[in-house]
Structure formats: C-alpha cells, structure tokens
Design a protein around this nucleic acid. Sequence first.
RNA 1: GGCUCCGUAGCUCAGCUGGAUAGAGCAACUGACUUCUAAUCAGUAGGUCGCAGGUUCGAAUCCUGCCGGAGUCACCA
Length: 630
Amino acid sequence: MSSRNDIFAKNFNTIMKILNVLEAAVKEGVKALYHETFDKSITLSQTRKEFEGDYTVVVFPFTKIAKKKPEQIGEELGQYLVDRVDELSSFNVVKGFLNLKFHDSFWIDFLHSVLKDEQFGKFPSNGQKVMVEFASPNTNKPLHLGHIRNILLGWSTAKILEAAGYDVVKTQIVNDRGIAICKSMLAWQQFGKGTTPESTQVKGDHFVGHYYVKFEQAFQNEYRTWQQSEQGKKIFTEKKKDGDDEVIFFNSYKNNYFNEYSSIGKAAKAMLINWEENDTSTRNLWQQMNQWVYDGFETTYKKLGVHFDSALYESDTYLLGKNIIDDGIAARKFYKKEDGSIWIDLENHKLDKKLVLRSDGTSVYITQDLGTADMRYNEVGFDKMIYVVGNEQDYHFAALFATLKELGRSYADGLYHLSYGMVNLPEGRMKSREGTVVDADDLIADVINEAKKNTQAIGSIADMPKEEQENIFRQIGLAALKFFILKVNPVKNMVFNPKESVDLQGQTGPYVQYSYVRANGVYQKGIQEGVDFEEALNYMNLQSQEKDLIAQIFVFPSILEEAAKSYDPANIANYCYDLAKLLHKFWHDVQILNANEKGATAFRLLLCKAVAQILAQALDLLGIEVPKRM
RNA sequence: GGCUCCGUAGCUCAGCUGGAUAGAGCAACUGACUUCUAAUCAGUAGGUCGCAGGUUCGAAUCCUGCCGGAGUCACCA
C-alpha cells in the first residue's frame, strides 16, 4: 500500500513548508517590486470560502512602501508570486486582498504524503520533559463534575503535549490527610458498625463520602442544640455584630464553634493529632479508609479512560519546604515578623506580602508546594511543569511561581498554572449543601445510558454481540461528555446542561465519531470490493468538497502546535468538529463507491482514509475513542 | 473596597498574534432517505460583538474608563 503511494509523494517537508516559502516569497516580492524591505510578519490566512483561492495575503500593510493602491499592489505581487512559486496556479485580487490558488496537484501530492505517514501531525521529539499535574482529589468525598473538567483537561493537555514532541509525565497529588478525612474516619467509627464497601456493596469513595456527610449532619445537630443552650445564647449576645440576626451570626460563627466548643469537632481534631503522632490504630483506620477511596477513584479513572504515571500523597509531602524557608531567610528573600511568622514581599511582582510559614513553625499550603516543586525538579528534571487547577487558585499559583523566581530557581520560568473556570449548572452554582453537586459516576452512567437508548432506537448495531454493543454505547456516551466539556476554552466558566451534554447531534462528540465511522466504513468497504487504488493516479480534477477536506487536513499540525502552545484542548475539539463537518458535506454531495469513474472512487476512498486517520488521531488527543460502527 | 478573569444570536459556544459581508450548534420553521448508515445535508429566521472614548487605512480583536457577572484578598487547602 505505502509503496504505491511513493509514486505520488513529493518531499513531505517541502509540502509542509509551503507557507513559509510563500511568506518569504512575499517579502522578496515586495523588495523586488518596491525596493524596500518589509520587516513585519506577513499575514497569510486561509481564503474565506466565499472567495476564490486557497490562501490570502493582505496587502494593505505594503501601501506605505509601495505608494500604490492596494489593488495594484495585489496585481503586481500576485503576478510576481505566480511566476516564481511552482505550487501556485493563479491569483485574484479583491480590494486589498490577494487570493492565491495552488495547483490541484499540490493538494493531491499532499494527501498522498499524509497517507504515507500514519503519524501525520505529530511532532518529532523535542527532547523536553513536561510534567502535567491534574485530578488531585481529596480523599473524603467522591469525584464530581468539577473534577471531571479538571481530569479531562489534564489528560487532553498531556496527550497534546506528547503529540507536540514532549516527553510527558502525568501525575497527581492526592490530598490524603487533614481534618476532612478525620471527619469521615470519626463518623465511620461512631456510625459505621464495622460495615465496609464490600459488605454494603457501595463503591469505596462513595462509602467514605457517606460518612463525611454523616459527620457534617451530626455536627450540625450538635451545633443547633448548642445555639439554644445558655452558652450559645450568651455567645450570641456577646459577639454578634450590629444587625446580625441569629441565623447570620451562627452561620459565620460555625468555624469558631467547631474549634472551641464542639465535642465532635474536638474528637476529629484529636484524631488529627493522633494521626500526626503516628498513633497505630489511627493510622490503620486512615490507611483502610483511604484505600477504599483509592479503589473507588481508580474505577472512575478507568471509566474515564485516564491513568497516571506517578502520584504524590500529601501525607508524604506536607512537611516539605521547610529547608526552603531557611534558604529564603539566608538569601534575605524572606523575613521574620516579631511573632515568628515568615513572609515574602511580592509587591514587585504586582502581588502582596505572602505568609510562607506560620508563627508556630508549621507549614501552610505554599510551603508544601515550594518543597514539592523542588523535589519534583530534582527527581524528574522537567523543563515544564503544568498545574491543572481551578481558577480560584490563580493568586496562589502566581505567588508560588513568583516566590520560586525570587529564590532563583532555574525551573521557575517553566511553571504554568493551567487555570480553568468553574462548571455551573443551568440553575447556578453546584452546592453540596443543596445536593446539586453532580456526581462523576452518576454522570458517566447517565451519558452511557443515553447513548444506549439512542443507539438502540436507531438500531444500527443491533446485529452485533451484546458485549461489543455495550462497548460502543460507552464510547459514544463518553465522547458526548468529553467533547461537551473540552470544546469550551478552559479560562471560561462554563454552563453544564446535563441534557445537552448527552446530545448526540450537532456540535458534539458523537457527530465527530459518526464522521469517522462513515469515512472509515466506506474505505473498508472499498477494500472489500477490491477497489484498485492505483486508479487514483488518474484523478486530477479536484472537487471543492475534496479540496476543502484536504486543506483542513493540511492545517492539522499548526492547530496541534497552537493547542500545545496555549495548553488549550478546545482548539483540537473545534478542529475535529470542522473536519467532521466537511466530511459530512462531502459525503452528502459526492458519490464515492458509485462515482462515475474508477479514478474518482479510488481517490475519494483514499481521501476518506486520510480523514478517518486524522479524526481518530485528533479525537485521541481529547481522550475520545472511535467506534468501528455506530 | 483592592487585584484577577469573563461579557459575541433566545440558549451553549467559536472567532481575539488587528483585515473582506461577525460564524457554528441547540431551540423554531421549511425541504432532502427504493442511497456508500438521515447520529446527516440544504435552507429560513435570529447580532447596538456589555457601554463610551482612543489608536489605526481598517477594531469583536489592541489601549483607557465605566457597567454587569464570577473568583480571590485566611497563620484554610
């Protein structure tokens, strides 16, 4: 197969570099025609579909140099380019826009070079290592919709960077310690009656989350009772601010109550202290409950089709960073207040003063992150490190990076916070207290179910074995969910409409998958029917639908490059949709197997093969699988 | 209140390193299946690109101010 394509293929690199060649030629042309160098970059964009041509040069910027009207410059420059660049067949000028057209053979050659290269679009290794941290859950609750956005973004970004030539390490840091997990532990001790996920048939993370909720309920009951007690009433009259009614006051006083009066709170804190002092039974219980949670998370990650290369646990890292504090003081970057707390002044980074160590000498969040960054750099030696964390921590990461820079860490410039916006529901924000949090496992089950319902209604795969059908339902449902989330630019808050997320029509994952299924299906059928692909050689006259597809394939590497540069999977998602749309249009407009000449059939089948190849590859960058049928 | 981010069609989103008449999808309406799978295609309708200035031959895109929304401003993580 590949050997026969050799006949077509020109040097691949020459083809991909045509835009650079054009740019250089434009500059050369301006200099030759108008005797002056144009030193800014050239605007070279795909010609809008309502005009004739493939690529467009905007000539307005040359008017100063040429001292001529844009139209005339366009004519002169167009002629210059067509005379000198072999690939160009013609040009036309509309106002200040010079539209250039390539020979069909250029596009045909390009297509064949893509067919030769299964890895088309991927960049060769650049020798750089990048670490992507994502997911990073707490172990007291199951995963929810917010985590899903995080996980999908992290996974896709990692895939994109890999395709862009980086050596990628996918990692997470698990918040496995602290007061939260102690709450779950305590509630399980008090109310759990020795039950386990196995004995109750409840997924481990949900099982543990259930006891976290139990704790909160018990705490609230205790708090309410206390509010009516003598002591509670006394505190209210003593401490309320003007205008506070009881509800407002006690809402804001909750943390104080937890820390100072609550007996259940006291018990949880005692448990935390026991944990820190390595008390055996506390540690055992902690280990047991965390293990339940990890088993549960693992199941969810598997369902989402993601995995990690490494993980860190906060129980191992929460004491890190203290050595950095000493370094920082020695380097006079940190300073000590009278109370013993340590600070850094980041005002020259347009930030504030930031505490890096408590007065009692214990760590805060940033202390640990400083230490973890150092440790990772020393162990892994990354060139870049991407933290996928929600935008509520923008300030934290700005401060973290600025601090590392102040400390002269060579790797500080390679750190990047991939910040993403909140996921809201049509009714507004998810609130655990109002029970509106969308559970990850439920959501996954829902989308798969919806895909199943729809697919069965269509009946297109009813003849397949049950197991294969189930797999396809899964592929389709997850495609809907993943595409729905990843098509949105990460910086934006997004509205997650559960109903729309399972849509299978329009701008969706399944739409793109369907495009793949069609392209791949007809190509396979062509093989079965023994189509002679050699005939494609005789096909010379490209239809516009064909050229549009080829031109869209042509831009794939630059889209990938842009997605990697901006850490934005939405670029890829939108690309997939555009390509899929062109395929559907092509499918509708032209005949493939029934074309009136053999050359057209062969050529179009090869085109379908290439499109399927690119779609599969691009979808894979989003973590979306392609079904064989649907 | 300070700082950061967001504001494009009824809804969800593209477009933002300045370039042609601002694009998709959903929802509504109309049309296309004896066909290589209609999870599709074609069409109608829907816009003061939050507002006001500025820079420019040219601004949704860059700058300034304002308005609206979100986040953050803990010796929490």
